[in-house]
Nucleic acid binder design. Structure first.
Lengths: 222, 222, 222, 222
DNA sequence: CATGAATGAGGCTTCATTCAT
DNA sequence: GATGAATGAAGCCTCATTCAT
């Protein structure tokens, strides 16, 4: 889960990025995250984002970003950057597969406490992008490879005897989907507790992946 | 999971819905489902939907539906209608809570075999609708109440001793999210097997909800 | 010099063109010709063209044409169509190369009498297009092949002994350029007489291409 | 064909033009010539010109020129300055009207060898300017007067018995147009030979203006 | 009922120009 | 003098919607 740096500002020469420019870009990306999380991808127009950022016109956004795709790329990259910074240390501190899985889920959900708009925004963006959108292909590939990575890690844990027997791909998809579901739906209730919710979700998948979960897996109720 | 009938055609007189009219509406809704599943909510314009339906103009759609929101409502309602018809008998055939949960998950995923576009379309629509979209208010409320219903059923099963101890709300969200994740991502792989995948997912949540899942829930890695 | 039919209206199905639609397109193309001839290619915006055509918005133009390139293609095609209709019969009525050359030049200039805006418009368009504009490549190629055709005809006339010795390519370019020059500059003077001007220009190139034009071609003044 | 000095930098005080300022202006004008010749008038934006000039921002251009018109005026003036320096000595070295005409045409085309971008650029600019562009009024008048001057010289040569009988205005326009045509089209072929081409074109107009060009001017095909 | 042309709002983008630093 | 960020006016285009036929 590395951060992928975006392109931006049709860079035909070797113009380095100024400090001020970087600040403006960050400001716009931040405004975009807010707006996307609040009104959804479809209605997150440059007009709305500009207003949120306190800019006078949409031209400003086009001035700093090569296009809407570019801005969206930066939005995703920024969220990944933040998420990486928060999650990776917590994950790497674990030595067991189940520990890492729990750290992954919990730290991901906990992010909603510090950055309530980041994950909802990225779920919106990634849910509204098609892999045939040319400029977004890289991101879709990155997302897919992330699921692939999880699938691989799960499979390793199974071989090592840490996890039980189940389809690692479905498990990876379920984890991803469950997190997204919580991010999208639960985050907007008033008394949402990220820590408790993360622990619950981690518990859930801990039970679902555990090795000694009994031998009669659902044979009785079909 | 009942079907909610849509509004459609500003009914100012006493005009009942004719057969032709109903057929046209069904045709348009079907085309909309196809298009939404294929190109996504954002790009599912009236033009594209009309083309898919073999209609010569978008005026036809506006004539039969009060607006885009109305059409989308009908899309969701239609998918629910189909899903209800397929899922409810299978769920009600079960007598245990875990049996019903399994039937719910499996029959839901199996729908992808018979109606590959229906669920992806509804996920797209529901992911792109806000509760503050005026006419969508009561619709989103219905969606939320669905999760509430599941939450309630889970809680009952816990009281009855069928399920273990966990937050029923998080579980409901996780189930919903995991299914959506599988629907969205797995539906586009070529060799997708709905039955096998549904069983895997049902197994997963069976383990996650089971009562005797061991008592040492991940205490070692926190 | 055949007319090339344009594309227009993103035609993904088999939708034939309606009579009304064809009329609107013709109206818009006519307005575009007027505007381009009057204010030049650069300032011939959709807004101006719509106003000239009596349309309420620029959206109307985009509705009937796939884009600005498409409209420009139609403009050129329309002018070619008119020019072909007028010029080809007059050219083909001639049996000698010099007769055809004269008929070509005269009929071309005479067009300014009946359609004063057509040729200036097309000169504007073709002068503001680059061959790397993708969608205009075909037209540039057509223009180039037109000069090539002239070059070829001149060469044949030379072989047949009808024309004197000179570089046919330069001659073709000079004819093209001279006509364009007259079209652009002379057409806007009030007392412009197309017939007389055409005859003068034809005389000029008749002298320039004639076989027995003396043997000491400019050797004395270099 | 005299150079007309441009306006530039709203001069409200008594500030003379410094050396640095002049150098900057020349640098920008040179870059503009390159860009215009390469991408055409329409796409020759300040951004592109600034990049070509190695400038970091377009503000630099606006600072040194009163506006785009002003820059374009300077571009034309600069090309005229160069052209005058090259052509005038060669023209004045001739004593006959036909010699001067030949020298004019040949030296003009030969300029393409030394300054391949200058003439194409000026043709682009002059083709995209209207006399009603406010600040361009007197500039276009100067251009017209140039053709008038040629017309006048031709008429004098006719009175002196050096040239045959023909409409001097049409001849002047044809020469101008033919040169522009060669400049525009021939300049982009790889193996273009300016000297040979100029001689050919001069030969052409030598034959067209000569006195004893035979008396039966195309009487057979009218 | 159906058609398809017309509308008008709104979206993204580009551009010349201005201004604080 | 120079820089580069900001501005605001157009420009082209798409879309849902309306309306005469």
């Amino acid at each position: 889960m590395e951060a992928r740096s975006g392109a931006g500002k049709q860079d035909g020469g070797g113009s380095a990025r100024t400090f001020t420019e970087a600040a403006r870009r960050a400001q716009i990306v931040g405004a975009a995250i807010e707006v996307i999380a609040e009104v959804g991808y479809t209605k997150a127009t440059f007009t709305r984002i500009a207003k949120q950022a306190g800019l006078s016109s949409t031209g400003m956004i086009s001035y700093h970003f090569a296009g809407k795709d570019d801005l969206m790329r930066e939005v995703v990259a920024e969220v990944f950057r933040v998420a990486d910074g928060y999650m990776i240390p917590r994950i790497e501190a674990q030595t067991t597969a189940s520990g890492r899985l729990r750290a992954f889920i919990e730290s991901n959900i906990e992010l909603l406490g510090e950055f309530p708009k980041h994950l909802p925004a990225v779920v919106e963006v990634l849910g509204n992008i098609r892999s045939d959108d040319s400029s977004m292909r890289e991101f879709c590939a990155a997302m897919d490879s992330l699921v692939d990575t999880h699938t691989h890690l799960i499979r390793e844990a199974q071989k090592a005897g840490e996890f039980g027997e189940f389809d690692p791909r479905v498990m990876a998809l379920a984890i991803r989907g469950a997190i997204d579901g919580v991010v999208t739906r639960a985050a907007k209730v008033p008394d949402f507790d990220p820590v408790a919710c993360g622990r619950e979700l981690a518990d859930l998948f801990d039970r679902a992946t555990r090795k000694d979960a009994g031998k009669d897996t659902g044979k009785d109720n079909r």
